[in-house]
Each structure stands twice: as C-alpha cells, then as structure tokens.
C-alpha cells in the first residue's frame, strides 16, 4: 500500500493478466518464457489440468471424455516468496510477505510483462486482477468491532459466542465499466491460540475489449488506489496502530 506502515499486514499481493489471443499457448512458449526468467526464478513446478466428463450419448450408452486444460506452470524465486504462474494466455504474479511497497511490486510486474511480451504474439489484455490479502491478528479477549469497520452485523439477541465468520461483499467502481471489487473478510480457523486472525481479501478485476500494454501503468495505479482506499476505510484507527 502507498501509505507506509512499519509492519504492513499484507501477506500476499497478486496481479493477474488474461491476454487476448486466438492462438492457444504451447510448451514451446513456456520454455521460451523460462529462458527469460530463469536467473531470477530458477525453480518450477507444474499444476496439471485434467477433467473427466460423463455424457449421455444416447439412451443405452454413456460417453466419457477427458478434457485437458493447458497446465499452469509455476516459477519460484530462490526464497519462494515471488511466484510467476503461467497458464494459457494467463500470467499471474504472486508476491508473498514481506511486502516492500507498491512501487517495488509494480516494477516487478512490468519487468515480467516485458519479458512475456518479447515472446508472446499478443500484447492486448482482456482482464486484469489486482488483489491484496491482509492478515490482522487480534487478541481473542478484544472486541473485533473495535478494529474492523467492515464487520458482520450480528443481532444482540443472539446470545452466543461467535466462533468464525465469513463476510463477502461485491462493489462496482463508478469510474470503470466491466469491473468488480470483491471484498472478503473472514477468520482463519485456529482454536489452538488466543489470537483471532482475520483475513481481509480485496480483489479488483477489470475487463476490457482489449487494453494495450501502454495504458497499463495508469490503470494499475488506479486499481491500487481503489484497493488501498477500501483497506483504509475497512479498519479503525485502533487497528492501524497494530501495523506501526
């Protein structure tokens, strides 16, 4: 986040791009991409994509099909806190804690995008997702409503102890068409400590007919600004003192 905290609660930031292309990618593309990034991301792992489908062919016969998806290949840096995930015209960049700054993350996004574009047959973007996951730890003897402004409204008559909650809200940004901001606030299950961990997950997705890479910087800045704004508005000042 642009507003600097000494101990930011960000545990993961994600930037994902869906590119516009008529051609499906193949393993040659994956190999070429790996050549470009392998110094910084030497480790790799494959997530296989396969699905099994059963269909009624006629009254007496059932056909079954295997549906293959282009696998997702993950590339990790040596510390395994930076991950690139490559799918079919899909590029996802995950940055795990410790998070330094938006500027650093954005620089990294652009470095990777540039390398991708040197070998890709398209530089038009169909969809961008920018997502931040924040973990906030609060003692269980505290009132969570003192920390969170976005919080489930529970009727007082329900005279039971709250165990876990999961709150999901979707917003639309007025500035952009075809956009959706998903905010998910939920507790992380853990009965073994006296700390309640809350995960605040803010996910901003924008769809385009086709967006050129040249326009990317300003779009990303606006998306980040919106996410930061929601983050700040969801938490009380008391909560923010935990990050300093």
């Amino acid at each position: 986040m642009t507003k600097k905290y000494k101990n930011p609660p960000i545990i993961e930031s994600i930037c994902a791009f869906q590119f516009l292309s008529k051609e499906a990618q193949d393993f040659i593309f994956v190999g070429q991409f790996y050549e470009k990034i392998k110094e910084e991301f030497p480790l790799r792992q494959q997530k296989l994509g396969v699905d099994l489908l059963l269909r009624n062919k006629d009254e007496s016969r059932i056909s079954h099909e295997f549906e293959f998806h282009f696998p997702i290949i993950q590339f990790f840096n040596q510390n395994k806190n930076f991950v690139i995930q490559l799918g079919n015209n899909l590029l996802t960049i995950n940055y795990l804690k410790p998070y330094a700054s938006w500027e650093e993350f954005k620089d990294k996004i652009f470095q990777i995008i540039e390398k991708y574009n040197t070998i890709s047959n398209t530089n038009l973007i169909q969809k961008i997702t920018l997502r931040y996951l924040n973990q906030i730890n609060i003692n269980d003897n505290e009132n969570l409503a003192d920390y969170l402004l976005l919080y489930p409204n529970i009727p007082q008559n329900i005279n039971l102890d709250k165990k876990n909650f999961n709150l999901y809200v979707e917003f639309k940004d007025k500035e952009f068409e075809n956009n959706i901001i998903k905010v998910n606030l939920h507790t992380l299950k853990d009965e073994t400590t006296n700390i309640i961990s809350v995960l605040l997950d803010i996910d901003f997705t924008l769809s385009f007919n086709s967006l050129s890479i040249n326009e990317l910087s300003s779009i990303l800045n606006k998306m980040h600004f919106e996410i930061e704004n929601i983050f700040e508005l969801c938490l009380t000042e008391k909560c923010k003192t935990l990050f300093n």
């Binding site: 997530k47 296989l48 994509g49 991950v83 997702t129 299950k189 853990d190 997950d201």
Partner: peptide
Amino acid sequence: IEELKREPSIITQIESLQKLYIFKNPR
C-alpha cells in the same frame, strides 16, 4: 482438487487445504 489448483492465491490455497485435511496446529 482441480478447483483448488486453479485458485491463483497461494494463501487461499493453503486455507483451502483445510477442506481436505484437519490442521492439527494451524498456525
């Protein structure tokens, strides 16, 4: 499993593992 694998967030994937396994010491 495929659905869990398609989840882009590493953190969410870790949390989703709790659909498959009981975490004895989650933290």
